[in-house]
Amino acid sequence: MVGEIASSYSPVLLIFGFALIAMAPTLIISRMIAPKKRSNPVKFLPMECGQVPSGEGRTHFMMQYYAYILMFVVFDVMAIFLFAWGTSMLELPRTATLPILAFLGIMFAAMAYALHESRRRDIW
């Protein structure tokens, strides 16, 4: 039974593997037939619109909207939890919807508070 469920996922992995096997040769062929002319160090510099690059590539970068990433970590999981309820809602009694509404209320209130806090500039 478990094996059957697991094997129903195998086509997803197979098509993933097939695309890997089918697409890798294009890079190899390209590598074989493409010209390799005049190697010089300037050619392999990172692209900065013709200027000589200055500083590190992986610099410090102000993530002004970091709060949204943090909120995603929490609310993505909460959103997926709702699907467990959604699939079985037609079989559940009607009273079972009330706790879910309370859960939605908590989720909504938490989201509103998080969004409110994320607009504060002094904490980021």
Binding site: M23, L27, S30, A34, L45
Partner: peptide
């Protein structure tokens, strides 16, 4: 596209950079 030279920046992390498009 297939007949163009592939140029990879010298400081790039090459295995990941090659694998990412595939």
């Amino acid at each position: 596209l297939i007949s163009k030279e592939i140029i990879i920046p010298a400081k790039a992390d090459k295995p990941i950079f090659w694998a990412a498009p595939v």
